[in-house]
Simulated assay, not measured.
Amino acid sequence: MDQERRQFYRIDQPVVIDYKVVSSDEVAGSSQPYQFNVSPYFLLQSQLAEIDSESQHLIYKIGESTPHLATYLQQLNKKLDLIASTIAGTDLDLEHSHTQTINLSEGGLSFVTTEAIPMESYLALKLVFPDNGLGLLLYAEVQRCSEVDSGYELGVSFMLMPESCRTLLARLILEAQAKNRKRLVE
């Protein structure tokens, strides 16, 4: 994992994280965890972000020939994002959740937990990013479990991640990089 981990830019990111230890059969049965009871709105922001990402090049092309139409479409997109964040935000109930800062990359993450989990165990992960209401369900394999003051720090690598999730994580990481650079310049 050390070499693989170094291939990706890593950020510290606040997140609400939940996990369950699962079997290899459960992982093999689905590319996205089904072990969590989530509402239809849980993945709404992620799905809309995926559609937005897929349509950006189209809006750019429209903007070249019809700038007013492209501006109008971008405004409609903002309206949809506002409605979706309101709907998803009421469903996520982040006020009663514990947020912790994780170290995140496109390949995996590390986080602190109260229990030791053996290396090569499989986890179903539920991540909620409070800043944007983005929710992700992913599988991961434990690569590292180290004792720390507050419990155990787990290092996990993502498994069977759909390309759409990888794209969303990459975008999230790029946005965080841009914010960090802007903060350093100011």
Rank of each mutant, 00 (worst) to 15 (best):
D2C: 09
Q3T: 11
Q3K: 12
Q7Y: 06
I11P: 00
D12G: 12
Q13D: 10
P14V: 14
V16D: 04
V21Y: 02
V21E: 04
V22S: 02
S23W: 05
S24I: 09
D25P: 03
E26K: 06
S30P: 04
Q35H: 09
N37K: 09
N37F: 02
Y41K: 09
F42T: 03
F42Y: 01
L44M: 07
Q45T: 13
E50N: 14
D52M: 08
S53R: 06
S53H: 08
E54Y: 13
Q56S: 10
Q56Y: 06
Y60G: 04
Y60Q: 14
I62F: 07
A70S: 04
T71F: 08
L73P: 00
Q74S: 08
L80F: 05
L80R: 06
L82I: 11
A84M: 02
A84G: 02
T90D: 02
L92K: 02
H98W: 11
Q100A: 06
Q100I: 08
T101Q: 09
T101R: 12
N103I: 08
S105W: 01
E106T: 04
E106N: 04
G108H: 01
L109I: 14
T114C: 11
A116R: 13
A116V: 08
A116F: 14
E120K: 14
L123N: 00
K126V: 06
P130A: 12
P130M: 10
D131E: 12
D131V: 11
D131A: 13
L136M: 03
L137N: 00
V142P: 00
V142H: 03
V142S: 03
Q143Y: 02
S146P: 04
V148P: 02
S150E: 14
V156M: 04
V156L: 08
V156G: 00
S157A: 14
L160F: 07
M161Q: 05
E163H: 11
E163T: 15
C165I: 09
R166C: 06
R166M: 07
R166T: 09
L169Y: 01
L172T: 05
I173L: 07
A176M: 10
Q177C: 10
K182Y: 10
R183Q: 14
E186S: 13
